[in-house]
């Protein structure tokens, strides 16, 4: 019995170790490559684990010549704006959906769910034409269509959260003479804060990662967000893997920080949105 249990543990261990290796290896390898000279990347040293003569040249080129900081700034502006307005809009409507009875509520919920399943490509054409007419191409107005990818998810997660907060709390607040707004502000928000925070993080990540709308609506490189800017590093004629690796390493850092600090919230958001409890 004892040995079979130990065998099981070893199998588990091996599996988990292999899994961790598979998940981390690509990052690890890209990180190493970012310190290699292009001679080493394309030459015989391509598969060497420790760079022969480590260099920071790739980082310097990416930061100062290719101006990756500009696209990081863009991504930051776009993702933050999206997060702020989506969280506000979603909180209010999720509260109303969770607390009030009205006609067409199920239709609205079904619609919100259906929108999250739409192929994004279906919005891209009409929104492109709309922006062309309004002269909004190549601007930060792109945060508005980002609502189609972030808002349904945000409303959905928040409705679940609000449903878990007992009604009695608000009813007693009402008896004490609080207005709807006061109830929301003083009773519900503090209780819903963890849920709202979770939604904020997930919205931020979704907006930060968005690719299709960004590449079609903001074609000017001044407005490129990180994913688009990075995809343009690989040109048709030359692929400078050293620079690509350095850029990848730089842009992964914000994501890494978010994940390390907020993993609990992220997991709770993901699972409450996708899995019933």
């Amino acid at each position: 019995m004892q040995t079979s249990k130990r065998k099981l543990w070893i199998t588990f261990g091996v599996f988990v170790a292999f899994y961790l290796f598979a998940m981390v290896f690509p990052f690890f390898w890209v990180f190493i490559t970012s310190f290699k000279t292009s001679g080493e990347i394309f030459g015989t040293g391509a598969f060497r684990v420790i760079p022969k003569d480590p260099t920071l040249k790739n980082y310097i080129t990416i930061l100062f010549e290719k101006n990756i900081l500009n696209s990081i700034t863009n991504s930051f502006i776009v993702a933050t704006t999206t997060t702020i307005y989506v969280v506000i809009v979603a909180t209010f409507s999720a509260y109303a959906i969770s607390r009030f009875h009205f006609k067409g509520k199920n239709i609205l919920l079904g619609l919100i769910l259906a929108v999250s399943m739409f192929p994004q490509m279906i919005m891209t054409g009409p929104v492109y034409n709309l922006f062309l007419k309004l002269d909004w191409l190549n601007s930060y107005a792109i945060v508005l269509p980002y609502s189609t990818i972030t808002l349904p998810m945000a409303v959905w997660i928040l409705v679940t959260h609000f449903n878990q907060i007992p009604l009695a709390l608000e009813e007693s607040a009402k008896i004490d003479g609080a207005t709807t707004f006061q109830t929301l502000y003083k009773v519900i928000f503090p209780l819903a804060a963890p849920g709202v925070f979770t939604v904020a993080i997930i919205t931020f990540i979704a907006a930060w990662n968005e690719f299709l709308l960004s590449i079609t609506l903001n074609t000017n490189s001044e407005y490129h967000t990180v994913p688009v800017a990075i995809s343009f590093l690989r040109t048709q004629f030359e692929i400078l893997w050293g620079e690509v690796s350095a850029a990848t390493a730089i842009v992964t850092i914000p994501t890494l920080i978010i994940v390390l600090f907020f993993q609990k919230q992220i997991v709770s958001g993901l699972t409450s949105g996708g899995v019933k409890e």
Partner: peptide, 15 residues
């Protein structure tokens, strides 16, 4: 597990 999910798909694809 969260890192591959969290990084932009475009970055993962390029990697």
């Amino acid at each position: 597990s969260l890192i591959p999910w969290a990084i932009p798909t475009a970055v993962a694809a390029l990697m």
